[in-house]
Amino acid sequence: MTTPHKDQFGKPVGHPVENWTGCAFPPRSDMTGSHVIVRPLDVARDAQQLFDANSKASDGSRFTYLPTGPFTDFDAYKAWLESMTASDDPMLHAIIDKATNTAVGVAAFMRIDQKNGVVEVGNINYAPALSQTIGGTEATYLMMKRAFDELGYRRYEWKCDDQNAPSRAAAARYGFTYEGTFRNHLVYKGRNRDTAWFSITSEEWPAIRAAFEAWLAPDNFDDAGQQRKRLEDLRP
């Protein structure tokens, strides 16, 4: 480890980040895995497929912890996607099931801080066809791999409503570290949101990457597609 910086009194004030020049902005290109393709969302191409996929959860539960929705009207959903793709941050991606060539989920790079090497994954909305599948986990891995391995980001964030138990569980399963809860952080849909913060750092990423790759390996699944080892159990 490098020698920490010291103040004028000789007290350590933090370790240097050597040769740091910041990070590039995420490119608008596909991230391709064995089960899914994560690609920048194209409203004309993806909107109808995403709307149809979300409609399989007719109770609207997929939007409980998102600031908008649920959508029962396609035009309203399309308008929301158009507003979300009007700028580069958030950079919304569609998740394509390779077996059906169908868009079944969305996720975004957001709050992209190139100067400090920090990026958040958010606006995650998996339709029933993607939830609890190998492809759903692979999509998360592909986005992490882009942030850390391709672009050199130092910190990858996950935030969610503190009441969102499935999202908290997903963050823990993927290897994020819980850092605390911001109380009275937001007001949305007429209610308070306390926001739970999670992160993975570049120092933690190699072990987390190895666990993802071991979990995604074909020999980790039996003939029925059931996992032999859990992702959590493959991390040190």
Rank of each mutant, 00 (worst) to 15 (best):
T2Q: 10
T2G: 11
T3K: 11
K6L: 10
Q8W: 11
G10C: 10
G10Y: 14
G10E: 10
V13A: 04
V13G: 04
G14C: 11
G14Y: 11
N19Q: 07
T21L: 05
G22V: 03
C23N: 15
P26W: 06
T32C: 07
S34Q: 09
V36I: 06
V38P: 01
D42N: 09
V43M: 00
A44E: 15
D46K: 00
Q49I: 02
L50G: 02
A53L: 01
G60K: 03
R62V: 12
T64E: 15
T64W: 14
P67W: 03
P67V: 09
G69P: 05
G69T: 02
D75P: 03
Y77V: 01
K78P: 03
A79P: 03
T85V: 12
D88P: 12
D89L: 02
P90R: 01
H93K: 03
I96Q: 01
K98T: 08
T100M: 11
A103I: 02
V104Y: 02
V106K: 02
F109D: 09
R111Y: 15
R111S: 13
V121Q: 09
I124E: 06
Y126F: 08
L130C: 03
I134G: 13
T137Y: 05
E138A: 05
R146V: 08
A147P: 07
F148A: 07
E150V: 05
Y153R: 06
E157Q: 11
W158G: 01
W158C: 02
D161L: 09
D162N: 13
N164V: 10
P166K: 08
R168F: 13
A171N: 05
F176M: 06
Y178L: 13
G180T: 08
F182C: 08
N184A: 10
H185Y: 15
H185I: 04
V187N: 10
Y188G: 11
R191W: 01
R191V: 05
D194S: 07
T195E: 04
T195M: 06
W197Y: 13
S199F: 09
W215R: 02
W215C: 02
D222R: 06
Q226D: 12
E232T: 14
